[in-house]
Amino acid sequence: MEIGGIIAYLVSFAIMAGIYAVFCLGLNIQWGYTGLFNIGIAGFFCVGAYTSAMITTPKPTGIYAHYVHQILGLNLPFVFGLVGAAIVCGIIAFLIGIPTLRLGEDYLAIATLGIAETFRLIFNNEYWLANGPRGLIGLPQPLQGLVDPKSYNYVYLIIVVIVMVVVYLLIERAIRSPWGRVLRAVREDEISASMSGKDIFNFKMQALVFGSMVMGVGGALYAHYTIAISPEAFTPLYGTFIIWVMLMAGGSGNNKGAILGAYAIWAVWIGTKFMTDFLPYTLKARAPFIRFLLIGILLELILIYRPQGLLGEEKKVSKLIE
């Protein structure tokens, strides 16, 4: 492979890992700071991607309308897609939070798992909504006319990094505020936090909604990178499980760890792809599953031997405490 090919490969690697980093940051608000166990990230991933797709594409007309069904097509710029994805995911998180956040921590997990599977079923079976299993294709990419299509990925990498940094700064700002300290108090000890007059349900709900909005943005970034989306892209493996491994590896409760984990685990994931290239021919077709098996074992090892992850949590988050 000549040098240009390697750089192009690295750019696409950095884009995908950057998108996953946005998801990790969203999950970090929920799990890392508040202790909310959301295992339906794939659901928010899916809804974020579809929402942005429907906001930014025009509604099919003429002959295309026979082949492509979508309930909405607003043909608005990319930024509206990002914001719309965040808003819709926030609303869904709010609705999921109502029945579950007053109960034990496992209930949220079961409910989010259910909602992720349900969304996938709906997008797969309801053709009128977003074209069923065939999904939506030809999503617009922002600033497309700016450069030669061959080097467009550089532009998208800059967009992804900007979004990632903005999300990072936003969360850092929020976490270092009194609000963020309440989240950690809720995570550590609900009873003493509520004895200090904090409304546990409200704070959990805010963290759930905030984190899910970030995940919605991640879904939108993914959709406009791949240009084509279908329900099968949002499986529990690629949509939920790997993001959990990333956050646990990087260090939950640490935003730098969330980003580091995303890049590190994505590198491991890509690395194992090269490894499985050496497998005998008969096993090649099952290579992705062998790779996921390794990622699953990695998660178990992290949970037992290094639950704090690579970076671990910062104990002091207030600049007023030295």
């Binding site: 646990m248 062998i290 996921f292 098996l293 990622i295 699953g296 998660l299 178990e300 949970l303």
Partner: peptide, 24 residues
């Protein structure tokens, strides 16, 4: 003395491990 959520997460990992072995 891990919290219950760590067990649940570990079981989620177990579930993926068993499923991947069966698919392989």
């Amino acid at each position: 003395n891990s919290g219950p959520v760590m067990f649940a997460m570990s079981s989620l990992g177990t579930s993926f491990i068993i499923r991947m072995i069966i698919i392989i």
